[in-house]
């Protein structure tokens, strides 16, 4: 089994963190996992993306040329990433900041206003977790409970952040139904 996931966004949107979170959670399920980030020199802003490859056999190349799942946090180079979607691939799009409305034939598209939803929950930074919830609804790489467990292990950050993130996960999961 092979799952290649690309998460793309702007620096500060938590794309790289989300990739790490997914890699850590999947470690109990897949024997081989690679994760690698690609970001510019900026701490905030600028393009930032990462790739997670989960496989039942040895992973030669950690760079996925095609994606079985794509999470688009913003518009930057969105069309380029969509072109990388493998047949039957799934694109989850943050419609608050990304205007992709269709994907090539044979691929699936799930749109949710993740940034707006995260804003309502009290933390715009949790948009990445909303997206994870939506992805898991359509591509259960691992259980929601497993995702929750990893989120609980994240550095706590601001007070109340953990609760918001847990709600964001559920909200994304429900909204993507």
């Amino acid at each position: 089994m092979l799952e290649r996931i690309i998460i793309a966004g702007a620096g500060g949107q938590g794309s790289v963190l989300l990739g790490k979170l997914m890699a850590l959670t999947a470690m109990d399920i897949f024997p081989h996992i690679t994760f690698f980030p690609a970001y510019g020199a900026e701490v905030r802003g600028g393009a930032s993306h990462c790739q997670v490859v989960m496989s039942s056999t040895e992973i030669a190349s950690p760079c996925a040329e095609q994606a079985d799942a794509l999470i688009l946090m913003n518009q930057h180079d969105a069309a380029g990433f969509v072109a990388q979607l493998a047949p039957k691939g799934l694109a989850v799009v943050n419609s608050s900041l990304c205007h992709i409305r269709q994907v090539p034939r044979g691929r699936r598209l799930v749109s949710i206003p993740a940034s707006a939803m995260a804003d309502q929950l009290g933390s715009p930074r949790s948009a990445n977790i909303v997206m994870l919830g939506a992805l898991l609804r359509h591509k259960p790489l691992f259980s929601m409970a497993a995702a929750e467990q990893t989120i609980r292990k994240l550095p706590s950050g601001a007070p109340g952040m953990l609760e918001i993130n847990l709600r964001a996960l559920q909200a994304g999961h429900q909204a993507a139904g």
Binding site: M27, H32, I33, F35, F36, P62
Partner: peptide, 9 residues
């Protein structure tokens, strides 16, 4: 940089 920043179990 690729192997340095890559994560694997």
């Amino acid at each position: 940089g690729r192997i340095g920043q890559m994560m694997e179990p």
